[in-house]
Simulated scan of single mutants.
Amino acid sequence: MGFGVREAEASGGSVPVWVAWLGRRLGAVRPWRLLPTPTGTPFAFGYAFLLCVTSLISAYADPALVHALLQGSSTDVAHLVRAPEFVLVGSALWVAGGVASPFAIGFVLVLTALERRVGGLRTAGVFLLGHVLATLATEVPVGIAVLAGHLPDSSLHRLDYGISFGVAAGVGALAGLLPPWLRVPLLAGFGWMLLQDLLAFTDPLTNWGHPIALAIGVATWPVLRRQHREHASHLGELPTSS
């Protein structure tokens, strides 16, 4: 049966095509590609640099100034009504918990991997889509509940900022571009973490926003997979998703 094999020059035997391809891929693994670079992943690199700057400000600036900046960037209902464009952008310039937080680390790894597969523009689009839609999906019901008298007016004014919704969308999008043996544990592990947060119920709006953002990222699979196949075909590689 000669289908699906090619001659192995070094040994004189024959190996399946997928084994040869896997060998080439493993041999080409470069750990430093997990990190963003100015030329390879300009969006992830530039954004990470900006987050480092705002994290330094948050850590070392006058606490009153930091609080004012965070409050002015908050995507609570009151701010969304007055200046939606400003706060939706401004809230994504801060990292809740600092650069050592899980979502900050996830930002670097996930967005770098995603940008290497689909480019900076689409990566920025996924991040922005998750950040904006998940924010609106969690804050708009609060405004409606206040108008209906089910929540106090103080619910319109809360400190809400960070990159976690965008990162969650990035995880969902990236999973669709990975082979199943990586996709399943990524979604299962991240989903389990989000479920634990929901059960803890310490911050309901944020905790519900994360799975919403994850689902938004998953919804981008058809578009991103098509672009990724075109890119892989151009490079002469086999697609990594199915």
Score class of each variant (00 low, 15 high):
residue 70 L to A: 07
residue 70 L to Y: 12
residue 70 L to W: 12
residue 71 Q to S: 15
residue 72 G to T: 08
residue 73 S to F: 11
residue 74 S to T: 12
residue 75 T to G: 11
residue 75 T to N: 09
residue 76 D to R: 06
residue 76 D to V: 09
residue 77 V to S: 09
residue 78 A to F: 11
residue 79 H to Y: 08
residue 80 L to D: 07
residue 82 R to C: 00
residue 85 E to T: 07
residue 86 F to G: 04
residue 87 V to G: 14
residue 88 L to S: 01
residue 88 L to M: 07
residue 90 G to K: 13
residue 92 A to P: 08
residue 95 V to W: 06
residue 95 V to L: 01
residue 95 V to R: 02
residue 95 V to E: 03
residue 96 A to V: 08
residue 97 G to I: 11
residue 97 G to D: 10
residue 98 G to E: 08
residue 98 G to W: 06
residue 103 F to C: 00
residue 106 G to D: 12
residue 108 V to N: 11
residue 109 L to K: 00
residue 110 V to H: 07
residue 111 L to E: 05
residue 111 L to Q: 07
residue 111 L to W: 13
residue 111 L to M: 10
residue 112 T to P: 01
residue 114 L to E: 14
residue 115 E to F: 11
residue 115 E to Y: 12
residue 116 R to M: 04
residue 117 R to Y: 10
residue 118 V to K: 13
residue 120 G to D: 14
residue 120 G to V: 10
residue 120 G to T: 15
residue 122 R to I: 07
residue 125 G to W: 14
residue 125 G to M: 08
residue 126 V to S: 02
residue 127 F to L: 15
residue 127 F to Q: 08
residue 127 F to G: 10
residue 128 L to D: 09
residue 131 H to V: 05
residue 131 H to T: 15
residue 133 L to D: 06
residue 133 L to P: 04
residue 134 A to C: 11
residue 136 L to T: 07
residue 136 L to G: 08
residue 137 A to F: 12
residue 137 A to W: 11
residue 139 E to K: 06
residue 139 E to S: 09
residue 140 V to G: 10
residue 141 P to I: 02
residue 143 G to A: 14
residue 143 G to P: 05
residue 144 I to R: 00
residue 145 A to S: 06
residue 145 A to I: 04
residue 146 V to T: 05
residue 146 V to I: 15
residue 146 V to Q: 06
residue 146 V to G: 12
residue 148 A to P: 01
residue 149 G to D: 05
residue 149 G to S: 07
residue 151 L to E: 11
residue 151 L to I: 04
residue 151 L to Q: 09
residue 151 L to F: 13
residue 152 P to F: 02
residue 152 P to G: 06
residue 153 D to C: 00
residue 153 D to A: 14
residue 154 S to G: 15
residue 155 S to F: 06
residue 155 S to I: 01
residue 155 S to H: 14
residue 157 H to Y: 04
residue 158 R to G: 09
residue 158 R to C: 00
residue 159 L to W: 00
residue 160 D to Y: 07
residue 161 Y to E: 03
residue 161 Y to M: 02
residue 162 G to C: 13
residue 165 F to I: 03
residue 165 F to L: 07
residue 167 V to K: 04
residue 167 V to S: 00
residue 168 A to H: 11
residue 168 A to P: 10
residue 168 A to Q: 03
residue 169 A to N: 01
residue 170 G to I: 01
residue 171 V to Y: 08
residue 171 V to D: 05
residue 172 G to S: 02
residue 175 A to H: 05
residue 176 G to H: 05
residue 176 G to K: 03
residue 176 G to F: 02
residue 178 L to G: 03
residue 178 L to S: 03
residue 180 P to H: 09
residue 180 P to R: 14
residue 181 W to A: 08
residue 182 L to W: 15
residue 182 L to K: 12
residue 183 R to T: 02
residue 183 R to D: 04
residue 184 V to K: 09
residue 185 P to R: 13
residue 186 L to Q: 05
residue 189 G to V: 10
residue 189 G to F: 12
residue 190 F to K: 04
residue 190 F to E: 08
residue 191 G to C: 05
residue 191 G to V: 07
residue 191 G to K: 04
residue 191 G to E: 05
residue 192 W to L: 12
